[in-house]
């Protein structure tokens, strides 16, 4: 009975692709294709149908030996159930924000949360410095502390229009609307072609579209 279409035998996390398709920007076929990617990532270390932090890092950096402030932050934002692992629903809902067709406000909100390291509702100078230093270290780039400070000074001069030393959601929104390139990493063109990248989804598909 290899080809039993009984929906109760759907893979874990993909029991109801129609519901996920309704609540995200993905079509049912795209959800099914995304599940192929999820399977690949979630079976890299432990084949349990869930993505742990190590598997996430492995997929991002192709190595599990790297400590990354950002990979941690992205993982934690994906992990909306806060249990240290990603199920397919969390994965699909989070990646939906990165779809080229996702509303820009969702991208602005997600990026704000990403950079609001301490989740205080604003991005403070110390957090920006921490992220700049982490990015430079990651890419092996060396800038003096003076140069880093002056980059941050200039950024706050522009972004912190209320002059209170922090960037709130409204200021963040204004900044990224003036500089759309700051949101470039919030859109993944791959998601537009996900059904052609993972065509094998058709073998498990529940829909004809």
């Amino acid at each position: 009975n290899c080809c039993d279409a009984d929906s109760s035998k759907q893979p874990r996390g993909l029991e109801n692709p129609q519901v996920l398709a309704t609540e995200t920007v993905f079509s049912v076929s795209e959800i099914e294709a995304l599940y192929e990617l999820f399977k690949k990532i979630s079976s890299a270390v432990i084949d349990d149908g869930l993505i742990n932090k190590e598997e996430f890092q492995l997929a991002l950096f192709k190595t599990n030996k790297k400590e990354s402030l950002f990979a941690d932050r992205v993982f934690d934002l994906f992990d909306t159930k806060h249990n240290g692992i990603l199920d397919f629903e969390e994965f699909a809902r989070a990646l939906s924000v990165f779809h080229p067709n996702a509303p820009i406000d969702d991208k602005i909100q997600f990026s704000f949360q990403l950079y609001d390291l301490k989740q205080q509702g604003f991005i403070e100078r110390q957090e920006v410095k921490q992220m700049v230093v982490a990015t430079l270290a990651e890419s092996g780039m060396n800038l003096s502390d003076d140069v880093i400070e002056s980059i941050i000074d200039k950024t706050f001069e522009e972004a912190d229009t209320k002059h209170d030393g922090k960037i709130d959601k409204e200021e963040w929104r204004n900044l990224v609307l003036r500089h759309p390139s700051l949101l470039k990493n919030m859109t993944l063109q791959y998601l537009k072609d996900i059904t052609t990248t993972f065509p094998s989804f058709v073998f498990h598909s529940q829909v004809d579209d």
Binding site: L60, S68, V74, F98, T135, L136, S139, L188
Partner: peptide, 25 residues
């Protein structure tokens, strides 16, 4: 000039924030 660069532009180039890597082998 690095000082004319927006700090967030720099941060957004971090590998950990570029999720296209998830799709690549």
């Amino acid at each position: 000039q690095p000082t004319s660069m927006n700090a967030f532009k720099l941060i957004s180039m971090s590998k950990g924030l570029n999720l296209e890597n998830l799709f690549e082998d």
